[in-house]
């Protein structure tokens, strides 16, 4: 056990025991505070600075080629603690040239923002880097249905993110460079 040293408290002087000088000091402090610059942010007119690692509304993003990145692996649905995510998987037709080598994509992707707790697990678990909690922090609606973000809304919110994940392009290159079997 650590050694304990008992410190004797210094006896209070008379003025200290009346507390009046201390109260006066306190009054001085609060009074001087009145003239300091205010820290209030006038919210709707002034917006707060959103740091890069902010966890806002979860969104779906497209890659720079405009392809949807989500392949509906449903890992986010699985990991989501409040079960806010609901995905209907779907397959991508083979003949879409734009989406060569993409086989699977969500048919429907719903995030219930009344359930979402903004934990960011979905972003963390996503193997395709398709879901991001971006800088939107204010979402509101008049009905419960409105608060469920569907696929279209999620892509609208998400936009395009420059990514480091070029899986399908790599595959395309391999195909072009004679690795086709």
């Amino acid at each position: 056990m650590a050694k304990t040293i008992v410190l004797e408290r210094k006896p209070l002087s008379f003025s200290e025991r009346t507390y009046l000088p201390q109260i006066a000091t306190g009054l001085k402090t609060t009074f001087s505070n009145m003239f300091k610059p205010k820290v209030t942010l006038q919210y709707p007119e002034e917006k707060p600075h959103i740091p890069n690692n902010y966890r806002g509304v979860p969104t779906l993003v497209k890659d720079p080629n405009g392809r949807e990145k989500c392949v509906s692996c449903q890992l986010c649905e699985f990991v989501c603690p409040p079960k806010a995510i609901r995905i209907t998987p779907g397959s991508v037709p083979e003949d879409q040239e734009q989406r060569e080598h993409v086989e699977k994509a969500p048919q429907e992707f719903e995030i219930n923002m009344l359930r979402c707790i903004y934990c960011g697990y979905c972003q963390e678990v996503c193997p395709e880097e398709a879901i991001f909690l971006q800088d939107q922090y204010s979402s509101s609606g008049y009905s419960r249905e409105e608060m469920i973000n569907n696929k279209q809304k999620l892509y609208e919110l998400g936009g395009t993110l420059p990514d480091r994940h070029y899986k399908w392009d790599k595959k395309k290159q391999a195909e072009v460079h004679g690795n086709t079997h």
């Binding site: 080598h101 790599k170 595959k171 391999a174 086709t180």
Partner: peptide, 9 residues
Amino acid sequence: ERKNVKPKR
């Protein structure tokens, strides 16, 4: 290296 590309469906 690059991986092989084969028919997927």
